[in-house]
Nucleic acid binder design. Structure first.
Lengths: 334, 334
DNA sequence: ATGAAAGCGCTAACAC
DNA sequence: GTGTTAGCGCTTTCAT
């Protein structure tokens, strides 16, 4: 990489002259500016990012810590963050916590050495289960702002972007009740994390309000054979006529299992799941989904963080932004 | 963040003494080392990453450019890269090209300013279609090594990690022929990219070798309604008894469409697709898949790059590593 | 055993 | 209009 020094030497001027010329300073003569710019162009000069970071004490880099990159929702949020960050000239360094508290701490520690200006993160499951938040507080007190999304720690004072999980599930359940469904099951693999709990509560509220039915919940562990679990559940509960799935794979499998058992979907059974467009397009009939607008969640998180970074002097109040889900009706509901 | 300067001041010693003490230099007195380390611990001192990068002229950061983060395969490769890189103390900066040549160039340009020590990337579709490679060559000539994976540019001299697409598809097709399938269709949405072509060729070779059947290929464009295309294709070609899908969604939809049309899978029709474990677990019956071992691809790419970075003086020959796929037989084949 | 000084690449306040 | 200098945080060579 060419440096200012080399350009200066070749042009027989000082380093600062070159620097000023390239930064369009008024101080430098027109002719000099021209010569400098031409040579810089020729050698494809690019200011060294590291030197700039050191000088300006900011890296224009955001640390993103997510629990699982293979989760389509989280990947999509990452996409949203990346796109928004790029728009503002920020890069993102991605770390994957693998749902582990230890790895989450480690990533935070490793990047809090001047590598990044701030963090966007989604809590690891273990972090939520153990309810540890000290590492977040410490990071923030070091002057590195954090924006949490989806799975957040309410006791940490920072910006947050969340989804209306409770309301969305409540409303989805309501919509099945309006279809006169009388035996709606809630299926979930997300028992450990906050959003899983919120979704279950939304479902329960809707069911309990009917004063007629009892909630019916099927929880599946990560290590279970999901197809078997759902199949045997359906065989035991033959009157199931509606499914609310807290995650896409439960929804997809429930739908396929229903079809396999000869149920007409949606005639005999409706299915709604938290899932993406592509999930919906893969099932026959196409799945009715609760969409979380992951990209917007990511974009919002990036905006909140960048906004905070660029107003460092002024203390801004912490904000919590709710990105509302949308129920996209498709062919798996009436 | 605490700096050496601050520690030095507080301890009434020089900056270099502190630096040496923390780096366990023999030169410094035992007592001093102890005092320094204690204070550093107290203040939670961490060497500033940016300053180190500037000094040592390397960032211990890898730039990863992928065309699409929502592609499960690519996300998994990213995961593999991240894990391997972390193991060796490298961070990764992720850029998403969105299958666009322009964005790919831009990402390369933006990070080639000292932000990263090298690149791991998968070519954007547009890059492959237009066959542009100048930006790669330029980057490499600037001293930034590149490792390409999956979709690679054969005319660029650099390390590569690829999959045995041709052989794998050939063998998968063979295995359906062994099942006495007589009307096997190849379905793909990957027409523009190298791996899509290789897969098609592998299929064609196997079919042509039979000297009995003609290849039958269904190509689907990204913007098409995939379900409709496949459904109408199946209705027109009622004797289809085997499917080789170049991508997971074609495979999943083909299987579901077969079931929908009343075909018994695998009795009447077998389906094999390039897809992941989770895709396989979502269909009923479970999909037989060609697994690409994305994580290993990522890990291999990271190893190749890090190896090259750490032997910068010695010119090593470029390597192409082939990560073999595995055909995982499940319930969608006999 | 400790410290001073140079230098990585850059910007900017301050000479001249 | 151009150059000198200091400094961002760190390591390392070379004095002392």
């Amino acid at each position: 990489m060419v440096t200012l020094k080399q350009l200066a030497k070749e042009l027989n001027v000082s380093i600062s002259t070159v620097s000023k010329a390239l930064n369009n300073s008024e101080e430098i003569g027109e002719e000099t500016v021209k010569r400098v710019k031409e040579l810089a162009e020729l050698y494809n000069y690019k200011p060294n990012k590291v030197a700039l970071s050191l000088k300006q004490n900011k890296t224009k880099t955001i640390g993103v810590i997510i629990p699982d990159i293979l989760n389509h929702f989280l990947a999509k949020v990452l996409f949203g963050v990346e796109r928004e960050a790029t728009k503002y000239g920020y890069n993102i360094i991605t770390c994957i916590s693998n749902e582990s508290l230890e790895q989450e701490k480690e990533s935070l520690r490793l990047l809090a050495n001047g590598s990044v200006d701030g963090f966007i993160l989604c809590l690891a499951e273990e972090t939520q289960v153990k309810n540890e938040i000290e590492h977040f507080k410490k990071t923030i007190s070091q002057g590195l702002p954090i924006v949490m999304f989806d799975r957040v720690a309410h006791d940490v004072l920072c910006d947050k972007v969340i989804v209306d999980d409770f309301d969305a599930t409540y409303n989805a359940t309501k919509s099945l009740l309006l279809e006169k469904r009388k035996n709606i099951v809630f299926i979930s693999t997300l028992d450990g994390i906050s959003v899983g709990k919120l979704r279950e509560r939304g479902y329960r509220k809707a069911i309990l309000e009917t004063n007629t039915f009892e909630p019916l919940v099927l929880k599946i562990k990560k290590k279970d054979d999901q197809q078997k679990k759902i199949m045997s559940f359906f065989k035991k509960n033959t009157t199931i006529d509606g499914v609310i799935a807290a995650d896409s794979s439960s929804g997809i499998i429930a739908l396929n299992t229903g079809v396999k058992l000869g149920l007409k979907v949606p005639k005999n059974m409706s299915v709604i799941a938290y899932a993406s467009k592509s999930d919906s397009f893969h099932t026959i009939p196409k799945l009715t989904t609760i969409r979380q607008h992951a990209k917007e969640i990511g974009a919002n998180a990036a905006q909140l963080l960048i906004n905070r970074l660029q107003n460092k002097s002024i203390e801004i109040d912490v904000k919590t932004k709710i990105v509302k889900t949308t129920l996209i009706k498709s062919k798996s509901t009436l």
